[in-house]
């Protein structure tokens, strides 16, 4: 027992030393300290985490992945661990896996109830991952649908050719072939509609930022805003509702859960909307 306590204390001293180096941005030295701490006590998640953070700052992604996996194996509730692993996976373009880690990080952060800059960072990477994931899949989807469209058009033409109704330039009132071709083209346009980037509907966007909502709050006037920007408005511009100019205080704001769900449903179908400028 006594020996164990001594080892643990020594490892802890290494960690403190490592932290000091880390804050001076001497990441190489910090890595050495944490490596020693790990050698002494390999079961302490924080040592792996901190070393991972050093690699993170040095953008050494393979090592970030390695250390954050070790840390998470010891403690699955480390927000930063999931965040770092998510970033490392995104580098490897393993979008789906990255999204899983980043969402886990956000969930953990939400339950810990701390509203710091971390949530912003995680969300930004998550949005990037979702967008990349969409880009990858949508290209494939659109390509497949395009091929199917061509095949269908050819089949339709062949069908009409064989049944002798292929009268493309006829002006008769019921030109079945050209009508069917038009309809077919419409069907396929609709099939890729959700994968076609466009404008997010106004009702899902904040009237101050013009961006899609993330944390919508509703005022007593019934207008919904993005929470962060509205708080900034109350702090910097004045205590009034920006659209109606009714008096407004922070405690009157209520989360608009319905809009939040609508945004989530919209993003699920239109992942291109994750793109930020």
């Amino acid at each position: 027992m006594a020996a164990d306590g001594g080892v643990a204390r020594q490892a802890e001293l290494r960690r403190i030393e490592g932290n000091a180096c880390f804050y001076k941005a001497r990441f190489g030295a910090a890595i050495d300290c944490y490596t020693e701490a790990i050698a002494l006590c390999p079961d302490v998640a924080v040592y792996w985490m901190n070393r991972g953070l050093c690699h993170f700052r040095r953008k050494d992604w393979a090592k970030v992945e390695e250390d954050s996996r070790k840390a998470l194996a010891l403690d699955d509730t480390l927000v930063k661990g999931h965040y770092m692993l998510g970033c490392a996976l995104l580098r490897k373009e393993e979008c789906a896996l990255a999204i899983k880690e980043l969402e886990k990080a956000l969930d953990l952060l939400k339950s810990s109830n701390s509203r710091d800059k971390m949530a912003e960072d995680i969300w930004e990477v998550l949005a990037k991952a979702k967008y990349l994931d969409w880009e990858k899949h949508s290209t494939q989807r659109v390509w497949k649908i395009q091929n199917l469209k061509e095949a269908c058009e050819n089949a339709l033409q062949e069908h009409h050719f064989l049944s002798g109704t292929l009268t493309e330039d006829s002006v008769g009132p019921t030109n079945e072939y050209s009508e069917q071709r038009k309809l077919l083209s419409e069907v396929f346009t609709n099939a890729i509609l959700a994968d076609t980037p466009g404008d997010v509907p106004d009702y899902l966007c904040c009237q101050i930022t013009f961006e899609i909502f993330r944390d919508p709050v509703i005022t007593p006037s019934g207008v919904t805003y993005e929470r962060a920007i509205l708080l900034e408005h109350l702090r910097k511009v004045g205590n009034f509702d920006p659209v109606t100019r009714e008096p407004l205080k922070e405690h009157q704001l209520v989360p608009n859960l319905a809009i939040k769900e609508a945004v989530q449903a919209y993003l699920k179908e239109h992942s291109w909307a994750y793109r930020s400028n």
């Binding site: 930022t209 013009f210 961006e211």
Partner: peptide
Amino acid sequence: SKIACNRLQKE
């Protein structure tokens, strides 16, 4: 700022 830039582009 980033917020200003995004908003002006949309406007």
